[in-house]
Design a protein around this nucleic acid. Sequence first.
DNA 1: CGGCGCCGTCAGAAAGTCGTAAAGAGTCCA
DNA 2: TGGACTCTTTACGACTTTCTGACGGCGCCG
Lengths: 227, 227
Amino acid sequence: MGARILIVDDEPNILGTVSSLLRSRGYEVFSTMSGRAALESLERDKPDLIVLDLGLPDMDGVDVCRHVREAASLPILVLSARGGEKDKVRALDAGADDYVTKPFGAEELLARIRASLRRVEPAAPASEPLVRGDLVIDRERFRVQRAGEEIRLTPKEFELLTYLAQHPGKVLTHRAILKAIWGVHTADQTEHLRVLVGALRKKIEPTPSSPRYILTEPWVGYRFADL
Amino acid sequence: MGARILIVDDEPNILGTVSSLLRSRGYEVFSTMSGRAALESLERDKPDLIVLDLGLPDMDGVDVCRHVREAASLPILVLSARGGEKDKVRALDAGADDYVTKPFGAEELLARIRASLRRVEPAAPASEPLVRGDLVIDRERFRVQRAGEEIRLTPKEFELLTYLAQHPGKVLTHRAILKAIWGVHTADQTEHLRVLVGALRKKIEPTPSSPRYILTEPWVGYRFADL
DNA sequence: CGGCGCCGTCAGAAAGTCGTAAAGAGTCCA
DNA sequence: TGGACTCTTTACGACTTTCTGACGGCGCCG
């Protein structure tokens, strides 16, 4: 139930304090003590938020920010002993979402974490069904209907359809789609995308060979028809 | 171009300082001095972000937060003279996205505003279409229109056109163009360029033999007409 | 006039992309 | 354990794009 949080700090003291604090509030906590390990954990553990200490031994904290930003779009909450304005600006512009100077109060940290998480997972205000032509996409129940008839989709197919249908008429590049569905660490896996698009078309298109909904933009990406 | 920001503060001093600071950075600024007026401005001006002072005369700042949250989902950046942990937690849990205590540095405020705005509009460099005469180059959708009619270009053709059209009237050397499109490692492959220019002209020029858009500068390079 | 260098065009070869099918790997559940 | 389902990975034909070399036109200059 609780969100997954990655803590990166080289001081065992703080690491222990913060992680047991978070665990006591029901979060699932992962922790690493270096920037490199943090980037690995990012791929492996798929956290929802990172608490990042800037004073790491192996990498500049700001660089870690940038790498994280490139790899995924999750909130970064920076901890730092340095309260100078320049430090703050540098970190925030590198992709940090919040900047807390030590020493900090436990409740403030928790409140800022809640605020950051709230933005990413806006509770569930979304989830009115998407209606596109005679397709109805119910994001709440993970169901799709065409002309009243139910269509069974796998999770990945559903994700892809939802992502495309959210931006009707707009050309979405292969890169953007890969990032949205697989997360960016994907190097060049456009083959996956081709296969997935094929599977989805076979299910939702009346005539998959001449698609009505999911259109190909050669050399660029795909586009959901503007119905 | 810049985002729309609403400032709510009852001290004319701060209101003036902050609003002229933001204006000088290209934001579109609206300001009110009471909570009630803020909620009205929210509907009327549709700001992208609110900078909210907690010490308002007519309403509790935290209540303003809650009302804003119910009415719309835009970032709220709270300013406050009170730095107590309880105040911060209360505001953040009421829906604030960030909490800055006075006195604060101008650059820090700006950085926090950038960070908040970045989350709302993620990864949208929003490159606007290039318009050159009756040519419209939509870099976002990878499309080109001439006089409203769509023209299909290959990726390389599109890259070349975009590069040239970005510097209208300026002579671009063969070297520069090769570097821009193929990368630096290219030796002297101006033949590619000649072929590519030919293909592009055949598609976008009404009379490819006497080009209107892409002009040849003998012995030097090419130049996009200054329309 | 004839060579030289640059430009534009053409056509075939090489490389890349798209859609599809199908085989292996992993998970979940009875 | 076995079966159903999903995801990943590979392979192939059809097709498009890009590369490459060859050819003629044009202006320049001796």
